[in-house]
């Protein structure tokens, strides 16, 4: 099973886990999920679309990360998953 993890649980960051899968699964944990859950999901979906990825399992543990951080951590997690 190929897995890649990137980021941290520090404030303003997020920890992203990417795992090879034959379907698309996105799980988001965030203390501000009620307000930003949809936006985090949108950043994840947009990034996956940019990368041409249709099936993958993504778990985001958000600690108040801005969009650019979520996108960056996701891209790194995907690269690490590919290299694993």
């Amino acid at each position: 099973m190929k897995i890649g993890i990137a980021g941290s649980l520090e404030s303003s960051d997020c920890l992203v886990r990417a795992e090879e899968s034959d379907k698309l699964e996105i799980q988001i944990e965030s203390s501000v999920f009620e307000f930003f859950g949809n936006q985090i999901r949108k950043v994840v979906l947009d990034t996956l679309e940019d990368q041409g990825i249709k099936t993958i399992k993504i778990h985001v543990n958000d600690k108040g990360a801005l969009d650019y951080t979520i996108r960056s951590r996701l891209l790194t997690a995907i690269e690490r998953m590919k290299r694993s």
Partner: peptide
């Protein structure tokens, strides 16, 4: 290093 480079690239663009 890989994570920092990617983060910095997107930070600078934002």
């Amino acid at each position: 290093k890989d994570a920092a480079r990617t983060l910095l690239k997107h930070f600078l663009a934002t």
